[in-house]
Simulated assay, not measured.
Amino acid sequence: MKLASLKSGGRDGTLVVVDRRLERAVRVPHIATTLQQALERWSEVAAPLALVTQELEAGVRADAFAFDTLQAASPLPRAYQFLDGSVYLHHMEKARKARGAAMPPNYKTDPLMYQGLSDAFCGPHDPLLLPDESLELDYEAEIAIVTDEVPMGTTVEQASSYIRLVMLLNDYTLRALTRTELPKGFGFLQAKPTSAFSPVAVTPDELGAAFDGERFTLRVRSSVNGQRMGEPDAGRDMFFTYPQLIAHAARTRTLSAGTIIGAGSISNQDESVGFGCIAEARIHEQGVHGAPRTPWLRFGDRVCIEAFDVTGASVFGAINQVIEKGVRSK
């Protein structure tokens, strides 16, 4: 299934089922009015939602309408919990070296993870509002999962069964603030503004062989102002898997239904595929040219992130945003 949330209907949006081509959609208020509501009743609603998908694909839904990604909020416009990890150690090592920070002593035994802003996410085509260009805004192309309720103490072997949805994530970072904020030892706060997610979230079965229960073998392309930055494979060079991230997060707490977990900026050791963030591109340029050439994001820049399956079809739709000067009022 492919599910989305329209902006109409309040802060949690209106749940719709979307066809595989991302062209048609159906509202399903008789099943669930919001995606959060569906996740909290997944055992009851999964089969009815799947039936709607079948009918939509068969072209027998008279109530279907054109799906406009401009009218889509992030699949979960807000969430009770958003956790982001860093499982591509190649990226972590380079990012820390760039800001003069050592790797933590246990980085190969325990995943790095922080709890991010989750009370309001950007829509996939909404502008990202930034108060000041000098904060060195960077994008990070990621794949995130959404869980069912996960019991405390869930093991790695059990964790995959709690993955309900998959989506793209642009986890913005203010690089100028990481250099002053992270040495305090309390993690991210100001350095992580709101994030954005793809127009649709998909159930793992929708990905077929691209999901092996642990990782997603998908090419994730990113560009700035139409210039391709990279197209790394999300399934390659992962040191920790999604089940390991779930088990790590649930060690001492229950995860509520609708918890979002990211895996960090996608990074392959083969740099010929490019990069999933500006920071890595600048580090590469520093080594090759003696100085970075790619600027941090500025007002008016457009960032696009999209994932493709083996046929070249877009899996989640694109996150396509312009950076604008301003602050969010709500």
Rank of each mutant, 00 (worst) to 15 (best):
G13S: 08
T14W: 06
V18Q: 04
V18Y: 03
R21G: 11
E23D: 05
I31T: 07
A38T: 13
W42P: 02
W42V: 06
W42R: 12
V45K: 05
V45G: 06
A47C: 09
A50C: 02
E57H: 12
E57Y: 10
V60P: 03
D63S: 14
Q71T: 11
Y80L: 04
D84E: 02
Y88Q: 06
L89V: 11
K94E: 07
K94T: 15
A95T: 13
K97L: 04
A102D: 11
P104W: 00
N106T: 05
Y107N: 00
H125Q: 15
Y139G: 13
E140N: 00
P151A: 14
M152R: 01
G153L: 07
N170C: 07
D171Q: 07
Y172D: 05
R179C: 05
E181P: 01
P193W: 15
P193A: 08
T194L: 14
D205G: 04
D205H: 06
G208D: 00
G208T: 05
G208F: 13
A209M: 08
D212F: 13
D212V: 10
R221L: 02
R221A: 15
V224K: 14
N225H: 09
M238L: 03
F239H: 15
F239I: 00
P243Y: 05
R253W: 09
S256E: 13
S256V: 14
I260M: 03
I266L: 14
S267T: 06
D270A: 15
F275R: 15
C277S: 05
A279F: 00
E280P: 14
G287V: 12
A291R: 03
T294F: 08
T294S: 11
G300K: 01
A307S: 10
N320M: 04
N320G: 12
Q321A: 08
G326V: 12
